[in-house]
Simulated scan of single mutants.
Amino acid sequence: MLKHRIITAVWLIPLVMGAIFFFPVEYFSWALVAVFLIAAKEWGRIIDKRCNITQWSFTLTIGILLVALNLFVPSDEVWFKGHLHPIFLAIMVIGACWWAISLLFILSYPKSSTLWAKSHMFKSMFGQLTLIPCFTALVALKALSSPADPYYGGSLVFLVMLTVWATDSGAYFAGKTLGKHKLMPNVSPAKTVEGLIGGLLTTMLVVAVVMLLSPEQELGLVIVVTLFVALVSAVGDLSESMFKRVADIKDSGTILPGHGGGLDRIDSLTAALPVFTLIYIAFWM
């Protein structure tokens, strides 16, 4: 398993970094459609793991919505005079509200599952609320690049990814070595309070990198934003775990050997990216 994880990471990380930093935003947005179609197909298994028609109909719905976004909001219109396109902004605000609701579902699980566990409609809606705001956030951040600073948008995307990776890695190792108190045993039995604290502490390495490269930033604000985004990413992770538990699925898919499905790799990012983008608009635009 570890060998497969390493091999997958060796080819996947350069591919992701190349797309983030070197793809023009118009190509980047269309490449994302393919990635999110994979995630959508995997979410279809959460809706109904036995029915291929349900899985493909949800995938088709997500595909139509993402293509429509790319066509109706071209990459050069995502930002205008420092303001995010109202469609993108509305989607991300709705997404942020969804993550607040999802947190309530997580905290009250399994009781909350009685409201949606048997409803294909609700689970489809939750899938759209999970995936589409993440897509718009990725495109919006990437579109902040300019001829004067072609890597700026990619750097912001990478910063969020780095925060999520630091949180996940710190949580994994702290949980393995120190974990004694279960965080949300009904949702994800392997996660511990010590792991979450370890993950949050690890994100201070990201803060150090930001302050080193951009010392004019306000340290307190960077720390608060980093910790908040890390906590939100944990909600994204727990949310997918909750939905997979109800669906009786261990991994969302098998497309990434040693890592599971594409959805398993982006579950934390689905929450972290739209929330970070809204924070960026509020404090840095």
Rank of each mutant, 00 (worst) to 15 (best):
M1A: 10
L2A: 15
A9Y: 00
A9R: 00
A9K: 01
W11P: 14
I13L: 09
P14R: 02
L15T: 07
A19H: 09
P24N: 04
F28W: 07
S29T: 10
L32E: 06
V33L: 12
A34D: 07
L37G: 11
I38Q: 12
A39R: 12
A39Q: 11
K41A: 15
W43T: 08
D48M: 14
R50F: 08
N52A: 11
N52Q: 11
N52T: 07
I53H: 15
W56Y: 10
S57H: 13
L60F: 10
T61H: 06
P74V: 08
V78W: 04
K81M: 08
K81H: 07
L84D: 10
F88H: 12
A90G: 09
M92D: 02
M92I: 04
M92P: 03
V93M: 13
G95M: 00
C97T: 06
W98D: 12
A100T: 15
S102N: 06
S102T: 08
K111G: 14
K118Q: 02
M121P: 04
K123S: 00
K123P: 00
S124F: 04
M125R: 01
M125C: 01
T130P: 06
L138G: 08
A140L: 05
L141F: 14
S146K: 00
P147M: 08
D149A: 15
G154K: 13
G154C: 11
V160M: 00
V160P: 01
V160R: 00
M161I: 11
L162Q: 02
V164Q: 05
V164H: 08
A166I: 10
A166Y: 03
S169N: 08
S169W: 05
A171L: 04
Y172T: 10
K176P: 05
K176F: 09
G179V: 12
G179Y: 07
K182S: 08
P185A: 05
V193C: 08
V193L: 13
L196M: 14
G199E: 11
V206M: 07
A208C: 11
V210L: 15
E216T: 13
G220V: 08
L221W: 15
V222L: 11
T226Y: 03
T226K: 09
L227K: 07
A230D: 01
A230M: 01
L231S: 12
V232F: 06
A234M: 09
V235G: 02
S239Q: 11
S239Y: 11
V246H: 02
V246T: 06
T254C: 12
L256S: 06
G258A: 14
G260R: 03
G262A: 13
D264K: 02
L269T: 03
T270I: 14
A271S: 04
A271R: 03
P274R: 00
P274Q: 00
F276I: 04
L278D: 10
L278V: 11
I279Y: 00
